[in-house]
């Protein structure tokens, strides 16, 4: 019974000294129910209490990769039956490994807020053309960039819905408006910036 166990763990969280395992286990409860937003909140709270928690960090990465795979499949119209990742409980005796054990995802740039910032900067450049090409990889077609500018002209960022996910190396963003017009952006890190290398209307 997820609700009862979550409530029990929540009570312990409020009455105990900081124990990252409590938030971690609430994350596992949510993740096993595929409640990704709740799971991410709990895992991130657990990490705030112990930055060394490689297992918790690995679970977060698994969620991002799982969602990215789903986003890819949905964007490309190829339904897949993707088994959810496995999530493990943490007892009180767990020894948290160095976060470097999850080295592949140990990248401060690989965060939703960083990508949101880049997408917003890209959006502003679309509207005023200043530095627009810098948001795309070097060999991206200037004609395609111009078409994108025309496509997004006179739209408001606040009206656009963003779905963001990460794979091991790339970021996937699906930008949509209220009329279900959707654009898939694939981005990769070039130096310290996310750059668009594929832009597809869905």
């Amino acid at each position: 019974n997820r609700a009862a166990m979550d409530s029990r763990l929540a009570e312990l969280e409020s009455r105990c000294p900081p124990m990252p395992q409590l938030a971690h286990n609430r994350g596992v409860l949510a993740a096993r129910a595929s409640d990704w937003p709740d799971a991410i909140d709990h895992f991130e709270r657990s990490l705030q209490q112990d930055r060394r928690a490689a297992q918790t960090f690995g679970h977060l990465r698994q969620i991002f990769e799982h969602r990215a795979a789903k986003a890819y499949a949905s964007a490309l119209g190829t339904p897949i039956d993707l088994p959810p990742p496995l999530f493990e409980w943490q007892s009180s005796s767990i020894e948290n490994a160095e976060r470097r054990a999850a080295a592949q995802a140990d990248n401060p740039l690989q965060s939703i807020s960083t990508l949101e910032y880049e997408l917003f900067a890209w959006w502003q450049a679309l509207q005023n053309s200043i530095g627009l090409a810098e948001h795309y990889v070097d060999d991206f077609s200037p004609v395609a960039i111009q078409l994108s500018r025309e496509y997004f002209a006179n739209r408001q960022w606040a009206d656009m819905h963003r779905e963001i996910a990460f794979t091991a190396n790339d970021a996937v963003a699906v930008i949509s408006d209220a009329f279900h017009n959707r654009t898939l952006l694939l981005l990769r890190l070039v130096g310290h910036r996310w750059k668009i290398y594929q832009e597809t209307r869905l």
Partner: peptide
């Protein structure tokens, strides 16, 4: 009411045992 660390560890492990 605050709980001791030891009590919390016992409660945590009991929860994990139930969940596993």
């Amino acid at each position: 009411e605050r709980l001791s660390l030891q009590r919390c560890q016992v409660e945590l492990d009991a929860a994990v045992a139930l969940l596993s």
